[in-house]
Simulated scan of single mutants.
Amino acid sequence: MSILTAPVSVDSRELEGRVAVVTGGASGMGLATVHALARRGATVAVFDLAVLGDGDLASLPADRVRPVAVDVTDGDQVDRAFASLLAEQPGLDILVNAAGVAPPTPFEFITENEWSRVLAVNVNGTFLCCRRAVPAMRSGGWGRIVNFSSTAGKTISTAGGAHYTTAKHGVLGLTRHLAKAYGPDGVTVNAVCPGLIDTPMTRGLLPEESLEKATRSFPVPRVGQPWEVAELVAFLASDRAAYITGAAVDINGGDLIV
């Protein structure tokens, strides 16, 4: 079974005609989100430093996905990418901020540069993309922003460092502020808070035995799959979630209740 796509048929076209941007969409939960949105009919611009391989998108219509090389920490690059997209498309409907980094450096060994880099990717990148997306969504009278926080945004990080925990708390604060500000304009802003999900980032932080040990006590005793997070994001990006905003939705196998 693919870790990117749901093991059930998704034939809904509920996002037909919608234009989406997914940051960090070249791998992990971001890539699974690209699949989930495109399979529902959205046209998706993938903002990432990495290059998508043909195999990553083989099951998707070629005209549904547009890879764009963007460093989300660079405001000029973000501005140019959005300007180019909006010059070609009639508007922007969905923004998913999935780009993130989570080095496991112990607190006393975190350098200023590393601290700044982690906050730049996880918080500044979210801010820079939201700053460009909000005016386009307000203009269209409809928008969905889904920011990636983490269980680290609710408690502390399982594997990442103190800078990652700090960043993911910051994402939740930004999410709530934007939800309050732009709800009257038809724009909802929510966060997803994944726990331990089977991604290259997680595998790079925790070996197999550590993952199994960590998840054994969960009410759902396993590692989560990227497609499961992507399905939640797709729901929050749809009309079905029109009355949900400012939420921080857990998807962690019950980790926080044990």
Rank of each mutant, 00 (worst) to 15 (best):
1 M>R: 11
3 I>L: 14
3 I>A: 13
3 I>R: 15
5 T>W: 01
8 V>E: 10
8 V>D: 05
11 D>L: 13
14 E>M: 05
16 E>V: 09
17 G>A: 13
20 A>S: 11
20 A>Q: 03
21 V>H: 00
23 T>P: 10
23 T>I: 05
25 G>Y: 00
27 S>A: 14
27 S>P: 01
33 T>L: 06
34 V>Y: 01
35 H>K: 11
43 T>K: 14
43 T>R: 15
43 T>S: 14
45 A>Q: 08
48 D>I: 00
50 A>S: 13
51 V>R: 14
53 G>L: 08
58 A>P: 08
60 L>A: 07
62 A>Y: 03
64 R>K: 09
66 R>H: 14
72 V>H: 00
73 T>S: 11
74 D>K: 00
75 G>Y: 00
83 A>F: 01
90 P>M: 01
91 G>N: 03
92 L>D: 04
95 L>V: 03
97 N>G: 04
101 V>D: 00
105 T>L: 02
107 F>K: 00
108 E>I: 06
108 E>V: 13
109 F>K: 13
113 N>I: 07
114 E>F: 07
115 W>F: 14
115 W>C: 04
117 R>F: 05
119 L>I: 05
124 N>H: 13
129 C>M: 07
129 C>K: 00
129 C>S: 11
132 R>T: 05
134 V>S: 01
135 P>W: 09
137 M>Q: 13
138 R>T: 14
138 R>K: 15
143 G>H: 09
143 G>F: 04
146 V>E: 12
157 S>C: 07
158 T>R: 14
159 A>R: 02
163 H>A: 15
165 T>G: 15
166 T>G: 07
167 A>F: 07
169 H>F: 15
171 V>Q: 04
176 R>M: 11
177 H>L: 12
177 H>D: 09
179 A>P: 10
180 K>D: 09
181 A>F: 03
184 P>Y: 08
187 V>N: 05
189 V>S: 11
189 V>H: 06
191 A>Y: 01
191 A>N: 08
193 C>K: 02
194 P>H: 12
200 P>Y: 11
201 M>E: 09
205 L>N: 10
206 L>W: 04
207 P>S: 11
209 E>W: 04
209 E>I: 08
211 L>E: 05
214 A>H: 12
216 R>C: 03
220 V>M: 14
223 V>R: 08
224 G>A: 09
225 Q>A: 13
226 P>Y: 10
227 W>F: 15
227 W>P: 01
229 V>E: 10
232 L>C: 04
232 L>F: 03
236 L>W: 04
240 R>M: 12
242 A>H: 13
244 I>Y: 05
245 T>A: 07
248 A>L: 06
254 G>H: 07
254 G>R: 08
